[in-house]
Design a protein around this nucleic acid. Sequence first.
DNA 1: GTTTAGTGAATAATTGTTATCATAAAAATT
DNA 2: AATTTTTATGATAACAATTATTCACTAAAC
Lengths: 134, 134
Amino acid sequence: MIRLTTQRQIILEELAKVTSHPTASELYDMVRKRLPRIGLGTVYRNLDLMADSGMILKLEVGGTQKRFDATTEDHYHIRCSSCGKVDDIDVPVIQELVAQATETTPYLIMGHHVEFSGICPTCREKKPHPDTTD
Amino acid sequence: MIRLTTQRQIILEELAKVTSHPTASELYDMVRKRLPRIGLGTVYRNLDLMADSGMILKLEVGGTQKRFDATTEDHYHIRCSSCGKVDDIDVPVIQELVAQATETTPYLIMGHHVEFSGICPTCREKKPHPDTTD
DNA sequence: GTTTAGTGAATAATTGTTATCATAAAAATT
DNA sequence: AATTTTTATGATAACAATTATTCACTAAAC
């Protein structure tokens, strides 16, 4: 079993605190407020360890950075095409999809994930009327 | 309009030739067989240009590398958790999902994508019986 | 034929992540 | 409680994928 060091506990707490799905460096900034001497490598290492042991999820979403999620139940996400932020989305999980896919692919299917793309409220406000010239 | 240079045409042809969704460097290797002096930068630049102009798709899938797709119609993908390969999957696109999501999120939804994960036939063969000790 | 803009190849720079390693902390052993 | 063993940490270096920069060259416009 994985040992719950101070660093790991605080990383986990900070991750559980937010509904967004922070990147490693975002989490690093959050954790550093409580543990100023922690290294970025420690954050990466522990996020990977916790993901491997199933405590958290490492999201395989689009964008350049990996994101992390303290909620391990199956659910879908939406990603902002403008700022890259990722949020949960409350759309029922379609388990039939896996059965459907099994029939048409030679792959051994392990799971599926739905990722919506859109513009988050914050980014919408920033450029609300791109063609308004008042 | 984007000019169809020799390099772009060959990149496009090589991409259209395969049903897998190669990364930039895979495509680089493919293209180099016909255009040995092309640079990796040229492949990256032109893939991005063609994706921006809508000629091809830049896939926002999991994994460390971006992948490209000559088929621009809406469809889903499956990614091998073992080798990272991405293939098309013939499961009908569920347009209702966007409508459903619109009701539960403050995001302005632009689209969605389903990504299955599994083990591809090649990787299945490689380790068919992981717990057999004969 | 000259100018101008765009292209391509080579190289350098950037970004996100992973590996290395001496030190520190915790656990196990005596 | 002191010592040994193990494991984790933090600082730094290394790495991989991508992007930006540079500049000779090509192709179109004048």
